[in-house]
């Protein structure tokens, strides 16, 4: 019985595609000094995985609005700042807060909160209750952005 339920949950999660089921909850975090100092997962992310998320236009979505040091990627957006040098401009904790919920820094920013499910309107059923990225994905992206130290 329990196995059937967990199997169903696994299938549901797989179908939902985000790796984040409705039953999952966002991990708690603390904002201090314009940053989230502690990793959401308790461990550092993987920069190589983070890069893959950043350039993936249906997962990270970053290049829809941002451009950056991705010479192989055509058609990068310019609605938002260039990601080049992000790791030099911001600390890891500052990058984490910018990914988790940029609205905490600027209520009017067009940067979506990548790790929030509350306060949204008319979210399509397939995405309801799910953040844009999981805690693991956020950490991977933060780890990658921290490597962007060039000019």
């Amino acid at each position: 019985m329990t196995r059937a339920v967990s199997l169903a949950a696994a299938i549901f999660t797989a179908l939902a595609g985000g790796g984040f089921g409705l039953a999952d909850e966002l991990r708690p975090y603390q904002i201090a000094g314009g940053a989230i100092a502690v990793s959401l997962t308790g461990t550092p992310g993987d920069a190589a995985r983070g890069r893959a998320i950043v350039v993936n236009r249906t997962v990270g979505l970053c290049l829809l609005c941002h451009s950056g040091p991705f010479p192989e990627e055509r058609f990068q957006g310019n609605l938002a700042p260039d990601l080049t040098g992000s790791g030099a401009r911001w600390s890891v904790g500052e990058l984490r807060l910018r990914m988790v919920d940029s609205h905490k820094l600027n209520a009017d920013t067009i940067m979506p909160a990548y790790y929030a499910v509350d306060g949204l309107n008319r979210v399509a059923p397939a995405f309801r209750g799910k953040p844009l990225l999981t805690a693991e994905q956020i950490e991977d992206v933060v780890a990658f952005l921290a490597t962007l130290r060039g000019q």
């Binding site: 979506p112 909160a113 949204l120 008319r122 979210v123 844009l132």
Partner: peptide, 16 residues
């Protein structure tokens, strides 16, 4: 603002 991406029409079509 609407959707999981949480943007309004105005944020693109008025502001950008």
């Amino acid at each position: 603002r609407i959707g999981q991406i949480d943007m309004s029409c105005a944020q693109c079509h008025d502001d950008n």
